[in-house]
Design a protein around this nucleic acid. Structure first.
Lengths: 339, 339
DNA sequence: CTGAAAGCGCTTACAG
DNA sequence: CTGAAAGCGCTTACAG
């Protein structure tokens, strides 16, 4: 039961190994009749070229790397990552690329992984998540000359290709909607302040609130976990000038916020309106279902993967703007109760 | 900026390529002094052996495959999978193995992926999830002679190694706890009936309810999604003989069930007690926090990975029983209100 | 259109 | 303890 090699196919077809290679890869050099015969034999004996041998001679690994820099607990609970991975993987496997995954502790470890992957020729390129404003991975990747696509941006990506979405516009839509409902005291519970997209959202929130004359608008930072989201919410709802609406930077914190409101005896949406970012199925799991800013995350991942394959192929690629998240109103938002 | 090869190290060290290989792999054949000098040079010029070349001569891919047979929406929302993957990955990367991930549509596609991975020598073995009672992957893997570890069991695993947990005992603990609180009408909302662990839980539920004399115990099947969990809960709570407690087969359905109770004006836990399986952080995100059956899922994944590496190494490996899930009581369970 | 051959970068018997 | 060489299974110029 040895696994068949190209030599087995060649022998059965009565041709050279080179001819089999040409036939399998759709290269010129064999007649159509021979090609068909070779393909039939390959299928018959269950031959697939060894990825190692292919990588060694072709100098391409046919694999793409993704390093995730979050602890298991956080990775598990944020639907975002798994949805992103699904989309990345779908695009890659359609092009016969494998996805290699590794969880890392910090940016230094992540760079070490990139370095090793590249030296080992284990991957042809990498996808980079959670871009920071002063990201040390960007210069490291530039120096390594490892093909890479940043999922995020559009700023701070150096010379790397990237895929991004206009979070500022999405946030503005949410704030304008709340103001249209009559809210004037709107707070935002943000994600990790070191991440670029948090900064972009924070700036946008300040800008739109300023433009609309909301003087009580404030951003409180958190870390995307339910615990921190709950704590921040409790603080906000206990303050003298309690907001009538809160925008959360992810679904997990929004759900935790809803639980805090219930725990404190506040009705949602009568006493407090809630808007979640990342419209995952989680938002429709709770009562009331959450109004949310969402977009197609698997598609986002697929686009990033496609960009990366283009970079690997040597095509000129820079930034690609993905769809802007849109607001889906549900039961968690309503006009504020007159006090 | 060419990536260095073993020949570069050999040249700088003034030895043969063979000597470098022995030094790097801790084989006898070089003196300790030479070994140290070679290692220093390798580190200095940033050399890591090409995984492809290594795979080609050593006949080992140093990679393990995991195929996931769930749509993106479900994969994303169930913390279970990402936690499992984190644990698998941690164990693998500690042993310098890579994890290759692929999402597949059904069991046939999954087998095709296994066949290709094995023919391509892309992986040295695979991890198998979501075991069914009549699983066609088990005989296919046995025939392929592809090293594999089933995450599940202990029955229906054929000759394959497996890692499992005693769900029957865990379920019994939950039911006994509810009965101790005074509940007599307990329902269970199960996962996909085709999965083996659903069957095990269903049998165990019938057994323990029979033993405790609960005549109103019933299992309703669902599919792990929030929508189906909500629908099943709505049906149960609308029936004439409404249960006073419901056990859910996963966290997602339990949270959806809590929302349905709130939507129907029932108090949790006063009118309805809720127990969730899979004690993920989701359970503590809601109000009241959910009583849940939980265990260390990343550790479960790590154990499966370790078993697989043992199988790949040719060690005799069969079944490994992992920790049994234990009950963590929280605010969603209480004695039933006297009617 | 086809065949013989070199080469990718390792590992590992096999001589010295 | 060390060196020269074969071999893993492909791809791809290079002759015919």
């Amino acid at each position: 039961m040895k696994r068949p090699t190209i030599a087995d196919v060649a022998r059965r077809a009565g041709v050279s190994k080179g001819a089999v290679s040409y036939a399998l890869n759709g290269q010129p050099g064999v007649s159509e009749a021979t090609r068909q015969r070779i393909l039939a034999i390959a299928t018959e004996i269950g031959f697939s070229p060894s990825s190692a041998a292919r990588a060694l001679s072709g100098a391409t690994a046919n694999a793409v790397g993704l390093a995730l820099c979050r602890p298991a607990r956080i990775l598990g609970i944020e639907p975002f990552f798994m949805e992103l991975i699904s989309g990345v993987e779908a695009e890659l496997s359609a092009r016969s690329y494998a996805l290699t995954l590794q969880v890392v502790a910090d940016q230094e470890a992540e760079i070490a992984v990139y370095r090793r992957w590249w030296a080992e020729r284990r991957v042809d390129g990498v996808l980079v998540c959670d871009l920071r404003t002063d990201d040390i991975r960007v210069p490291a990747l530039e120096e390594l000359q490892l093909p890479a696509v940043v999922i995020g941006g559009p700023r701070h990506t150096g010379t790397l290709a990237h895929v991004w979405s206009d979070d500022a516009a999405a946030l503005a839509e949410a704030v304008e909607y709340l103001v249209a409902l009559g809210h004037r005291k709107i707070a935002r519970i943000g994600g990790l302040p070191s991440l670029l997209h948090t900064e972009i959202r924070t700036d946008a929130f300040a800008e739109v609130c300023g433009r609309l004359g909301l003087t009580d608008a404030a951003t409180v930072w958190s870390d995307y976990t339910g615990e921190e989201g709950a704590r921040a919410t409790r603080r906000l709802l206990s303050s003298a000038r309690r907001p009538t609406a809160v925008i959360y930077d992810n679904d997990v914190m929004a759900i935790a916020g809803l639980a805090v409101a219930q725990e404190m005896g506040l009705g949602v949406p009568t006493d407090l309106s809630i808007v979640a970012w990342d419209d995952s199925p989680l938002c429709q799991l709770v009562h009331p279902p959450l109004t949310a800013l969402g977009r197609d995350i698997p598609a986002y991942g697929a686009h990033a993967a496609r960009q990366l394959l283009a970079v690997i192929a040597g095509e000129p690629v820079r930034g690609l703007q993905d769809e802007t998240a849109h607001l889906t109103p549900r039961g968690s938002t309503a006009p504020p109760r007159a006090r």
